[in-house]
Design a protein around this nucleic acid. Sequence first.
DNA 1: TTCAATAGTTCGTAAAACATGAACTATTGA
DNA 2: TCAATAGTTCATGTTTTACGAACTATTGAA
Lengths: 124, 124
Amino acid sequence: MRPLMHPSVDDITVEGIMHALSDPLRVQIFLGIAYAQCAQTCSTYLEISEQAIPKSTLSQHFKALRESGLIRSERKGVEIHNSSRCEEIDQRFPGLISAIIDAHKIQSERKRVLERRKKLKAAA
Amino acid sequence: MRPLMHPSVDDITVEGIMHALSDPLRVQIFLGIAYAQCAQTCSTYLEISEQAIPKSTLSQHFKALRESGLIRSERKGVEIHNSSRCEEIDQRFPGLISAIIDAHKIQSERKRVLERRKKLKAAA
DNA sequence: TTCAATAGTTCGTAAAACATGAACTATTGA
DNA sequence: TCAATAGTTCATGTTTTACGAACTATTGAA
């Protein structure tokens, strides 16, 4: 098994970040890691949504996040601990990650509101 | 030929924007349109880099930008004028687009510096 | 009007990227 | 040494993307 590859901060690209965060599942994973006070493992996300995510798929998504430079993965015994590289990225691209995180907050808040509204309408 | 489809501001998603801007050529086109004081046409970009970009490819890229909500395309006679939807997007996701644009400025400035350094080194 | 020129779209297909089950590897604890 | 756990890698079917060729829309001139 080859060692986990991480790009140096200088090799992180905007396009790479955009691509990594263009997949809904990957964003969800990344936000989970970014918000988490403790490092997250791959298995944390085995049932992130209604249906189970195959672990090979999860593994690929973690790899994509890692190779874009968004997360750091370190083996801790039998599992791999993932943490965000937000601070490093913020040094290189100030405000980028937080703007994306804020946009996601707005988007998911609006989604919640719309769903509640829909439910009320259906009940009426 | 079906009419040009534009999502309403409320249907613009962060993932959609990320995806649209995850391609280097598309970012270049988008930045060109965002910076431009006048609306840009598809043909403006036929030779954006060293080699010519096939126009069917360009057309698809413009379509991707349009359907992500990043640009507005309007037929003006024989050509189609493209302009950015930055203001609208900024209403929905304040600061997102400008953070991405700033990050690109940093990235391309750094690239320029590295290339100059390399050239000087080669000359020495 | 018809026709050529210009600007861009759409279609078909070949190439690249993705998703996932099955098999494999690494680490730990019994 | 071996079973259990956590994750990776491989093989393959599916989806997305790139681009040449053919098509459509608009204009301006004959």
